[in-house]
Design a protein around this nucleic acid. Structure first.
Lengths: 183, 183
DNA sequence: ACCTGAACACCGTTCAAGT
DNA sequence: ACCTGAACACCGTTCAAGT
């Protein structure tokens, strides 16, 4: 840490900062994800991070969107209801790996960012093929996203077993999909 | 503030601490709700609060449960589906008044506390009268709660108008209730 | 039992330097 | 442009006193 003088570079990149943040999150949870801890892990002074990210909020935003890259995209030409079911199930699984993050998704009202946007478009495409369009499609999209994020939030640590929760999720999801795409 | 000496009482109560916390939340939002700010508002030293609440988490827990006292309870002898619809709609309205809190409900996995428990029991009673019992009822309860909290979280500040969001919520809620109580 | 003073171990962020 | 040192304005919480 004290090994470098002012003016000497540490070879930091935006990607390295993001990677360090993700590692910290995985190893020690959200509470441990502080700017100072990220800096320590990268062996730089805390304020060095501000050359690569605007602030902590921006860093978190990117961490959040990056996770959505892990969601398995459905076949856009397959059965719409099955595709929607698959995306939401995959999304829940991805979120379940980092339950700490879920309240942040909700605080930010569902995540901006390229990955979130792409998933939304895929889902709208599936609905379109099922005859659900316009405002109806946007409503249904919102319902599905809220339901899935909400369930991921309550999906861990509760009194119910993991497989029981998975069944509850699946059940409610089918109720919703039946409402969205009747028949 | 510096007007009292060690040993002199300020007449603080647990209720006063809670009230100050709620006022701060209403006037300046969750970020402004710090132990030090609560203490300042009560004109005491920060650590004086610890004679009345265990820590900040315990204080927040009570603030969260207290809000649920505002939820209108349904007629336990009325139509079950209508009753469930009414509780969830009322809950959403109550949460919508303090959107800052919603991520906290989710982070805590849906709120412990007496008011939360009472509402759960009322809902289970309604389902029982509709023939939904045991594990099925617990599943349905969980689905409804998650859906409602999740929607409250995304219910404000988004790109959609308030009435449009209210309609989306209502629509999804009816889909779920149709699944829970068929016919 | 309830409160103050002082302190501890933290935060995120900014500003002025150095190369 | 990228980094350090130092500092600012905060946090929650604890501990030793006072009455």
């Amino acid at each position: 840490m004290g090994t470098r003088n002012p003016g000497q570079r540490a070879g930091l990149t935006r990607g390295a900062v993001l990677a360090a943040a993700n590692e910290l999150l995985a190893e020690r949870g959200l509470a441990a994800l502080t700017m100072r801890a990220v800096a320590t892990r990268l062996d730089v002074a805390p304020n060095a991070l501000y050359s690569h990210v605007a602030n902590k909020t921006a860093l978190l935003d990117e961490v959040l969107d990056e996770r959505l890259a892990l969601v398995t995209e459905p076949d856009p030409d397959g059965d719409p209801a099955a595709g929607l079911h698959a995306v939401m199930t995959s999304t829940r699984a991805v979120l379940l790996d980092r339950p700490d993050l879920v309240p942040l998704y909700l605080a930010r009202q569902g995540a901006r960012g390229p990955h979130a946007q792409r998933l939304g478009e895929v889902m709208l495409g599936l609905m379109d093929r099922a005859g659900v369009t316009g405002g109806d499609a946007r409503e249904a999209l919102r319902v599905l996203i809220v339901y899935t994020i909400g369930f991921a939030a309550l999906g861990t640590g509760g009194p119910l077993a993991a497989d029981e929760t998975a069944r509850s999720f699946d059940r409610g999801l089918r109720w919703l999909l039946t409402g969205i795409i009747p028949g």
